[in-house]
């Protein structure tokens, strides 16, 4: 490969430069929208829905929305780490079913105080397995977690024998506190969601580990060349994801005190939608916990807002679809400096 070298500035770079000069004002509006567009959209939504139905910003309603988003939200926090590190996790839905079923089953067998750590340990093992496959063996994360989605689903069914799992004495257990309890007038699931978001947000933004996650996702080769142990970072991201899933399973189990085997089915894609809506790139290296929280809340508020104006829950699917595509489209349009793709 002789002359890869006459690399004066590369094509793409100069192309971008040119278009920037052509429409500076347009580009800066675009950049602003790309950076803060999701917040702007969020605010517009809230204003719009509030006009349509003032009950929308009623504190009770807001709490209700956040509460019902908490399970999805907690899972999205973990997936944010995985996505920033440049991978995918499609297994969180069935993993959540798994932890819910396990903790409910063990609750009656060994008591809640032991059931909870046991469930966390088992869920983390699953996370570690995925982390090993993707991090150390460098297998494609889409296929690995797709396989794990199916495998964990099978594991759950095998574990439960296909039966629904219920706690025998639903009124006499303190276990319900995680899903149904309140502290300081705020539901516990919300507190858990916010506490986890704060903790993980700090880890991602303020610790050396967080910096390494961005580096590995942004340019894995350059990260390795800087002495970062890439496999270890990816592994840790999947552990964090599994931890979040365990927390979500705990809330889910505690809220209903009984569950089907398929309680988390399909959530992996909703979670991913929330993370993408928050502006994380599937290519890795970008996204924040704060933005993911916004993404989760947008999904929650859309659903709630549409219900309040009298539309069925499924209208939100269509609205979410449109919003996701618009959000990602505007994001990349701002980056490439033109609205339509250059694909011929």
């Amino acid at each position: 490969m002789a002359d890869v070298s006459d690399k004066r500035p590369a094509t793409s770079e100069t192309g971008r430069e040119d278009s920037k000069m052509a429409g500076l004002s347009k580009a800066s509006v675009g950049t602003f929208l790309a950076k803060q567009g999701i917040l702007v959209a969020f605010v517009l939504f809230i204003i719009g829905f509030t006009i349509a139905n003032p009950r929308f910003i009623d504190p009770d309603n807001v709490l209700g929305v956040v509460r019902s988003s908490a399970i999805l939200g907690v899972m999205a926090l973990g997936v944010t780490f995985v996505v920033i590190s440049g991978n995918l996790d499609l297994s969180v839905g069935s993993m959540m079913s798994f932890s819910t079923i396990v903790v409910l089953d063990l609750h009656d067998k060994i008591g809640p105080a032991l059931a909870i750590p046991a469930m966390f340990a088992m869920t983390l093992c699953l996370g570690a397995f995925i982390g090993f496959l993707v991090g150390y063996l460098r297998l494609n994360s889409l296929i690995v977690t797709l396989g794990m989605l199916s495998a964990i689903h099978g594991l759950t069914l095998t574990y439960s024998g296909g039966q629904n799992m219920d706690i025998a004495d639903k009124s006499g257990t303190w276990f319900s506190v995680f899903g149904q309890g309140e502290a300081l007038g705020i539901p516990v699931p919300i507190l858990m969601f916010l506490a986890l978001a704060a903790a993980l947000g700090v880890i991602l933004a303020k610790t050396p580990f967080g910096r390494k996650v961005y580096a590995v996702g942004g340019n894995g080769t350059a990260a390795t060349f800087s002495g970062i142990r890439r496999a270890r970072v990816v592994f840790a991201c999947y552990l964090i994801s599994a931890f979040c899933v365990a927390c979500a399973g705990l809330i889910q189990a505690s809220r209903s005190l009984g569950s089907q085997n398929t309680v988390g089915q399909g959530m992996e894609l909703e979670v991913l939608a929330a993370v993408i809506l928050g502006g994380a790139s599937l290519l890795g290296g970008s996204g924040t916990i704060f933005k993911t929280v916004i993404g989760v809340l947008i999904l929650g508020f859309i659903q709630n807002g549409l219900l309040l104006v009298g539309l069925q829950f499924y209208v939100q699917y269509v609205v979410t679809w449109i919003i996701i595509i618009l959000a990602v489209w505007l994001d990349i349009a701002a980056k490439r400096g033109r609205l339509w793709s250059p694909i011929a």
Binding site: L269, L282, Q312, Y314, Y317, V318, W321, W329, A333
Partner: peptide, 23 residues
């Protein structure tokens, strides 16, 4: 036309088309 990755586009329409089914 948008240049958005097919994974994201069809992830979105998976939800959207499902919504149409319900609607």
């Amino acid at each position: 036309k948008t240049g958005v990755d097919a994974f994201i586009v069809t992830l979105g329409s998976m939800l959207g088309f499902r919504g149409l089914v319900f609607m």
